[in-house]
Amino acid sequence: MNHPAGHTPAEPKRWLDHAQNVRKIYYSVWIVCGLLLLAELFIDKHGDVEIEHWFGFHGFYGLIACVALVLAAKLLRRALIRPEDYYDNH
């Protein structure tokens, strides 16, 4: 098993190490989402459930679900978090 030390000074920077490239990825997620909404104008969405036919239903549902999930989990953590050695001492 390896327990390596820190950076090698000579290590070249990777594409992802540049902040502007991370920003590119961030904005491209927005653009892809926009395109997926636009695509709905050309594709007839049919599902097993009536609300699936609403414009952008799956997109907005996923967005709201995930934001709600993370915010709820943050609240939950306040109540549940314990130090790593909790069970060793109890």
């Binding site: 927005w30 989402c33 997926l36 909404l37 709905e40 969405k45 799956h58 997109g59 996923g62 993370v70």
Partner: peptide
Amino acid sequence: LAQLQLLMFSALAFS
């Protein structure tokens, strides 16, 4: 399309 919307907007939420 439905699945891609669900997943990409979830990715958007994370981002």
